[in-house]
Design a protein around this nucleic acid. Structure first.
Lengths: 143, 143
DNA sequence: TTGCCTGCAAAGTGTTTGCATCTAG
DNA sequence: CTAGATGCAAACACTTTGCAGGCAA
């Protein structure tokens, strides 16, 4: 997956502060999705001076720049992940919160039909499947 | 849309208290979707003694009984609505928060494909379109 | 009578904001 | 230098929980 570099910040007129570099590095090192709090916990190990607020603010900034994407889960903390840049959706495990991406969503047609029927001008959609991943299914099996 | 009656509570072993009756009546009277807080505000007008906590608890109960459905919106208060009982999804206006239902979602095929590819046992999905409703589009037009 | 229900207050969770200080450019 | 960034504490929005008293069945 592509690396996020501090230059991307400068290009957009934002300062490349040490905190932001640290956060970018950490995001690059994480292969999975994570919550702001989880990322903060990891950062604390080597950078005890960093603030949770800065993590929130930086993730929001990166999300705004399109460098990370936000996975909005109702009832839970939002999760972030490096952006695969292409349009995609998520499959979330109810057991371990593992997230799998998929990108063949065929909603354009449905979107057009709905716009036509309802008069809405549709700008986006949110699709998420939930269930149990293969490992969690095993765990659930009778012992 | 179908009416919710207090008997449904008794049938399920729950007490039909005055508060629950009041909440059922209010839910019956609302045609749209609402947040717990909005419902609470309406109730206060004629039933100043009712507690917000009871509204939360009762909505959760009704949702558990399948009498109302919960519309989970990330970043906002969850909304509730009388259940149309059939599987459906929502179209939410970014301008006025109006919610429109639609029920022809063709995700079963996609769901099966994903289960096959990923090993997940898929139990549910959440689909929501966002955009601007016809009225809000007018409002946005240059004056 | 009794176990479920209520309402208050308080706690909890996740996130944002005000503000004084600091620092990248 | 100076606008923007940081970190703390406090505020915030929404929801849940502990508990003493209350009421439907």
């Amino acid at each position: 997956m592509k690396e996020l570099k501090p230059q991307r910040l400068k290009l957009n007129g934002y300062k490349a502060t040490p905190q932001r570099r640290v956060i970018l590095d950490a995001v690059n090192a994480i292969e999975t999705h994570f919550t702001p709090q989880e990322l903060y916990a990891k950062l604390l190990i080597h950078h005890p001076a960093i603030g949770l607020v800065t993590v929130y603010r930086t993730l929001k900034l990166l999300s705004h720049l399109g460098l990370v994407c936000e996975i909005e889960s109702p009832r839970q903390a939002h999760r972030y992940a490096r952006c695969s840049s292409e349009h995609h959706h998520h499959l979330v495990c109810d057991g371990c919160s593992k997230v799998v991406n998929f990108n063949h969503c065929q909603l354009e047609k449905l979107s057009r039909e709905l716009a036509c029927e309802t008069g809405f001008s549709i700008s986006g959609h949110h699709l998420e499947f939930t269930g149990l991943c293969a490992e969690c299914q095993k765990t659930m099996e009778p012992a």
